[in-house]
Nucleic acid binder design. Structure first.
Lengths: 338, 338
DNA sequence: ACTTTTCTCGAAATCGTTTTCAGTTCAGGG
DNA sequence: CCCTGAACTGAAAACGATTTCGAGAAAAGT
């Protein structure tokens, strides 16, 4: 049933029906008649016709690198919360760290099939800037700051600093670093800087051989821990850019008789469930992923309502969660997710 | 730029342009002219107008109960793989186990905004059947069988049987059961049945007090393990319906001096990353989540191409992964995700 | 009694496509 | 040379809504 049929059924004009659904001048009498007819027929306007006519889709695109990572999943949950509540729909593109898929995602944008975009970021290339710059849609970058764009991010530098400083404050003198590629500003560069901040602050020199770069998974953490610890057996504490990497490192220690925390303290950023229940519970820095997702969605909605809303960068704080991997006893309830 | 302007620019009719993009009789000469014009202007048809006119959206709705669960995330990744490759888009609704959100999701369907649905299932109410039955869209149920509908599911009963039988084959005589609500056919009912199958097969009687029901998270696993093990201290092995529950139970054992596997063997279904790196690595049954997602998407595409394709239920097999929680040594590479 | 403002109304134009339809051209078979 | 079918064409009619516009009625202000 379309609006014409429905209007005839209700005994009013098409315009009146449209006004009924969108708000506009309408007498009480017609309003009641339409309401009754809706009740009787279950009519509702076609979203597709509305999209064509109004040029609004009420759809938001979320682009992310990997769905099956706890942090991404939680951010998307936060986004979904807010979008649902505001009657927006969530289009998901999982790029699987694949630039071909990113291009496909950008095609979606060109086809005007969404009103706005939330981009969960890892590595930004110059190409990104070009494409994002030429977009006429509101964009929110989630997970790192990006000059000229709205963003919601975590204090990665502070988080890494806190984790590292915690180990140094316990008297450790020979810190190692297991990071990710510096091309990733948040998890790569900022966490590296935070690590260095803590060393500088404590007057501990950074030895060149004591750092290594891993990928975003446990296996790589294991391998890099292996090469790093073989090269630098004197390390007494290790900061890992992510929980996954830390778990991999921990696994290496377990299988090679390195006691944690006695021989080697380990800290990380991310505070994942897996880290909390690991062989040795890992001291990690909790970031507010879900909140970040919510905030990003709210920010986007704001920009959809008012295209001239100001460009804003919000940075969320963090919470250090000391656990056994740094010799701290963890209270029982610490394990459970919030 | 719309088709009219573009047709004028290229010096052809609107119909020719449409045929260029959709395939149809078109002389080589016009084809070349249009191709050149596309190159020059970057014109492409408006998806929204196409949707309205053709009544196809090239969008698929995925409804799931909880995004931040490893199993769901992996299934969605599988779905996304296939959809992307076939130029379909993925609309995501996270119901957060909330029926209000499910209603909202069903509204989406009524508004004809998607071509098909993949429903990642937990609990089915009679209401579900009504709504699903009245749907004129192809639906695939993912995660459990559902009479009358297409589905892709796991052999949950077999999986639970394998896990339980593994413990009994090691001489354990007093098995406990930590399940989830039977309203959930797959994780609740079928896994319970598989557990009972194994007991029957081994001639071990099922004592009434030796089972307990938990929610889908670690904390609940901890609590239920606590009540169960206090009530039945003689248990020597424990089957858990999910890895999360098993991890909670393991955590309880750890904090109460119960040795795993010496005092209590533990098995579960799901084979999550967290279970592999837990305090004691958990013997679990691996299900092929990603494959299931792929299959579901492929099945849906088939039904989109041919509305009369036959209703089909595929059941995937499983792989038992013996680990330390049942006294099996796990090879190093066993930890890493496939 | 007059203007002005505020509501209310429906016809018609519009959004950007696809598809039908009636018709033309052209090659090849008889 | 006629006939048939295949290849091709573009005007026009959908698809199902929103929004503009001009106008009428009622209320309010002067």
């Amino acid at each position: 049933m379309n609006i014409t049929e429905f209007a005839a059924y209700a005994g009013v004009s098409k315009a009146a029906v449209s006004r009924y659904f969108n708000g506009g001048y309408l007498s009480e009498e017609k309003r009641a008649r339409i309401a009754a007819a809706v009740e009787a027929t279950g009519y509702h306007p076609s979203l597709q016709a509305q999209m064509l006519r109004t040029r609004r889709t009420r759809q938001v695109l979320v682009i992310l690198p990997k769905l099956s990572s706890e942090s991404c999943a939680r951010m998307v949950e936060g986004i979904s919360d807010v979008l649902d509540k505001n009657n927006y729909h969530l289009l998901l593109v999982n790029t699987a760290n694949d630039s071909a898929r990113e291009v496909a995602a950008l095609n979606l944008l060109q086809q005007n099939t969404v009103d706005g975009v939330i981009l969960i970021a890892t590595i930004f290339t110059p190409e990104h800037r070009t494409v994002l710059g030429s977009l006429r849609l509101p964009v929110i970058i989630l997970g790192q700051e990006y000059p000229g764009f709205c963003s919601v991010s975590h204090d990665d530098r502070g988080a890494a600093h806190a984790a590292t400083a915690h180990m140094l404050s316990k008297g450790r003198k020979a810190p190692g670093f297991l990071g990710v590629t510096m091309l990733d500003k948040a998890a790569g560069l900022d966490r590296r800087r935070g690590f260095e901040d803590a060393l500088r602050e404590a007057g501990v020199p950074l030895r060149p051989g004591r750092t290594s770069i891993a990928a975003f998974n446990m296996e790589s953490g294991y391998e890099q821990a292996s090469t790093l610890l073989k090269r630098e057996p004197s390390l007494d504490c290790l900061f890992c850019a992510t929980d996954s990497i830390a778990i991999g490192a921990l696994q290496y220690c377990r299988s090679h008789g390195i006691r944690v925390p006695e021989d080697l303290m380990i800290t990380a950023v991310g505070d994942s469930e897996a880290g909390r229940v690991a062989y040795v519970p890992i001291t990690s820095v909790q970031l507010h992923y879900r909140t970040a997702g919510r905030l990003a969605a709210e920010m986007l909605l704001e920009h959809l309502a008012d295209p001239h809303a100001k460009v804003e960068s919000r940075v969320l704080d963090y919470v250090l969660r000391p656990r056994a991997s740094t010799g701290d006893a963890s209270p029982e309830e610490d394990i459970w997710a919030e």
